[in-house]
Structure formats: structure tokens, C-alpha cells
Simulated scan of single mutants.
Amino acid sequence: MKYLGSSFILFSFMGLATQQALAADDWLSANAFTVTGNVTMATDYRFRGLSQTSNDPSVQGGLTLAHKSGFYVNLWASNVNLLPGNSIEADYYLGYQWKIDAKSTLDFQYINVNYPGVVKDYHPAFHEFGVIYSRNSTFKEGDNWTLSGYYSPEFAMKSGDEMYLNAAFSYPIYKTINLIGSVGYTKLDSVTKFQQAYGYGNTDHYMDYKVGLKTNIKGLDTELSWIDTDVKHGPKTTDGTVYFSIGKSF
């Protein structure tokens, strides 16, 4: 009986080790990962309502590697026209998406925003942390509602704490046509910090808005929107604009 008990314990440990090895293999298998991407051409690149291309067209692209557990990595880039020596924004995201239920998700993100080639004295690069709640098919099948918040402990131009809040929706109105809209709120520590970050303004906050239509035409994602801010006496990059984009997801 002594040897039988020892054998049972040994085989139990072997079985547990085998299960853990199989689980590890499954976690790292090719089927556990998905790769998606997109390329977009647009009349402008608007970040929180503000043009990053001096109201000129932009070409953007992104690539996402996601694991079935919910973790993902995203690389994203666009042309910009902001500062001397720089013409590209290149970002990366690290995130985890928690599926609350069949309709709701909660994303936790770390975002690193970079401007390769820029004159170092400007310090435009920054990082921030984000939380995004999304719910689908709340009032109608296919609708989407999103609430998000972002915080940067050291925003662009070393301007200190920055907070951004956003509420957005997409609502199907006819076949593949969706009505879209959003409202955002940006807040910095002080008027001085706002001016340090943006180079203008007599306030420490502003709001941005978007309303438009989005659809898919023969596999191409298209959007036609109006984007605006409540910034007063700012440069033309803060003015309202008609925005049009066409892109392909793969």
C-alpha cells in the first residue's frame, strides 16, 4: 500500500504537469493570436478636435496583435505637420480588454505617443493611461456606445498633468449607414500649462465635437463628419472642418 500511494501521488503530479504544459502550449499557439490592420486616407488628421496636419490631408495606418486572453499590442502611425524636424507620429498601445458580458467590454490601455526626428528641445512626446467602456446593441442591434477617460502625468511639451474625457456613439440608421457622434473634454493644470502644450489660449480646458455618417462601401470604410472645438481666438487648426476619410481594414 505504501508503494501504491507513492505511485498515485507521482502519477497525479505527472498529470498536473502535463495539463499545465498543454495549457501553456495552447496559450502560446498560433490560434491564440489574431492580427488585424487598417490603412486610412483622410482630409485631415484631427486629434481631440485639433488638426495635426495644419488642415492638410493625412495617411494613417495601424496594426494590432491580439491574444484570446484579452491582451493586445497596437502600432499606429500618421503624417503630421506640427514641429520642425518632424513629419511623422508613431505610437504604440499596450492593452487588455475585459469582456464584461456579451454586449459590454472594458479596455485598459497604456499609450506612448512619439514624434521621430523632432527637435529635442520641444519635447512633444508623451504617454498616457486610458480606460474605455463600450456597450453594443443597447437600443438597436448594431449600435455602439463608448465612454472613455485618459490621463497623462506629463503631457506634450512637458506641460504636466492632462486629462481627457470622451463620450461617443454609432447608431445604424439605414442598412450599413451609421450616424456617429462624440463630445470630448480636455483639461490641463493651468492656463500657463495649456499655453505650454498648445502655444495659444487663455484657458486651461476646451471641448471638441464630432457628428457625421459612417458606412462601408464595397469593403471600404468611409466617413463624412463635421469636427469642431470651442477654442476661441485659436489658430486655424482649431476651426471647425468637414472631414472625409476612406480606409480599408484587414
Rank of each mutant, 00 (worst) to 15 (best):
N112E: 01
N38Q: 11
L147Q: 00
T18G: 05
L82T: 13
K187F: 10
R46C: 02
L188V: 13
Y174H: 08
G247K: 07
K68V: 07
A21N: 11
P116V: 04
T36I: 05
D204G: 11
Q109L: 15
G184D: 01
K103I: 06
A30L: 11
S104R: 05
S6F: 12
T105D: 15
L179C: 07
I100Q: 10
T146N: 09
F126W: 12
T43F: 08
I132T: 05
N81H: 06
S249E: 14
V118M: 07
S148A: 10
F8V: 08
H233R: 05
V119R: 15
L94I: 05
H67V: 02
Q52S: 09
V113P: 14
P116M: 02
S29T: 05
K2G: 09
Y151P: 09
D230K: 07
I246R: 06
M14A: 14
V211F: 13
S87L: 01
E162K: 12
K2R: 14
N79S: 05
L213W: 04
F11N: 12
T237D: 15
A42Q: 03
G37S: 12
Y96N: 06
Y243I: 01
G85M: 05
Y200H: 10
T53V: 04
F71N: 09
F169N: 03
Y110V: 03
N86K: 02
V211E: 05
V119K: 15
M41W: 14
S78N: 07
K214C: 01
H123T: 08
G212A: 01
G149V: 02
N38V: 00
N144T: 12
S78T: 12
P235F: 00
Y171M: 07
F194K: 13
I88M: 10
K175Q: 14
P153I: 00
N86R: 04
G212V: 00
Y209S: 08
Q60W: 05
S12L: 10
T64C: 05
F11V: 13
F8N: 09
V119H: 11
H127R: 12
Y3D: 12
V191P: 11
N202M: 01
Q60N: 08
F47H: 09
A168E: 14
N55Y: 02
D44T: 03
K140S: 14
N31Q: 15
A156G: 15
T229D: 13
S69I: 00
F155V: 06
A17V: 02
S182L: 02
G199Q: 00
M207T: 11
K120Y: 11
D56G: 09
Y209E: 07
Y185T: 09
E89T: 06
D208E: 06
G49W: 05
D121L: 02
W27E: 13
L106Q: 12
A32C: 06
S159M: 03
M1F: 11
L10G: 08
D121E: 14
S69T: 13
G219E: 02
N166M: 03
N216W: 00
V242T: 09
G184P: 00
S249W: 05
F71Y: 12
D189F: 04
G37L: 03
D221E: 15
Y164A: 02
I111D: 13
S225C: 10
F71I: 00
G240P: 07
W145Y: 14
